[in-house]
Amino acid sequence: MTVIHDNLEATEAKMRARDVNVYYGDKQAIDSVSIDIPQKYVTAFIGPSGCGKSTFLRSLNRMNDTIASARVEGTIELDGEDIYKSGMDVVQLRARVGMVFQKPNPFPKSIYDNIAYGPKIHGFAEDKDDLDAIVERSLVRAGLWNEVKDRLADSGTALSGGQQQRLCIARAIAVDPEVILMDEPCSALDPIATAKIEELIDDLAGRYAIVIVTHSMQQAARVSQRTAFFHLGKVVEYGRTSDIFTNPLEERTKDYITGRYG
C-alpha cells in the first residue's frame, strides 16, 4: 500500500516498523505503517494535521504509554529487538531513543541541572568532574555552550524560546541516545531560532538517527535525507527527500507538496 521508492541505497535500518496500528480507544490513528528508520540519516515525517505522524513518532519510544487509552499493534524493532515485547525495559528504551518536543519544556531547574538530570538518573557520571564534562559536551554539541557557559546556574526557563529548545536537545544528547525523535521542534520558534535548530540537526545527523516531524515542507527539504508522507494514518509514500519533493510517484503526495491541501 505504501509506495516505497526503489532507488534507496541499502542502509542499515536502525529502527524497523512493521504493520503498526495505533488506536486511541476505538479510534484508529495509525493504519498498518511499515517503514525503516535508517542509521545516521535524518528522516522527516510530513503530512497534514491529524494524519498520525506525531502519534507514530511517539510510538517509537513508547511515549504513547502515558496515554491510558492508547494501544499499539504490530512490531517496532530497535536494532532487531521488538520494543513492544513483554519484559521490555521502557526506561532503557527511552534512554536510547531520546525525544524533543514541540514546545520547549526545560525543567524549572538551573541550566546545569537540566542537562545533568539524565546522566544522574542513569548513573553515567562517576563524580562531579565527569558530570561537568558531560554537561559541557552536550551543550557544545547543541551549540549552546558559548551562550550559557557563564550562567549555568540560571534557570532553564529564563532562556529564550530558541535557546530553551536547544537546551532540550542538549538534554536529550546528554544521555547519549542512539535515536533522537523531534516532534515539530521549531513550530514555537521564530525564523532565526529555527535556522539555528536546523543547523544543529545537520551537525547531529552523522552521529544519531534523527526522526523529525514537521509541518514545514521547506524544513523537511532542508534538513532531511529521507521523507515519509503521512495521510489519514497511513504512510502514502516514502523515499529520498529529493525524490519526494521533485518527483513524487503518488498523486496525493504531489497534491500535498504543491500545497493543494493540508
Binding site: 519510544n61 511515549m63 502515558t66 526506561v91 532503557q92 528504551l93 527511552r94 534512554a95 536510547r96 531520546g98 525525544m99 518536543f101 519544556n105 526545560p106 525543567f107 538530570y117 539524565g118 538518573i121 542513569h122 532540550c168 538534554r171 536529550a172 544521555v175
Partner: peptide, 8 residues
Amino acid sequence: DGSLAMGA
C-alpha cells in the same frame, strides 16, 4: 513527558 522521555 520531558522527564519520561529521558528514560526517567
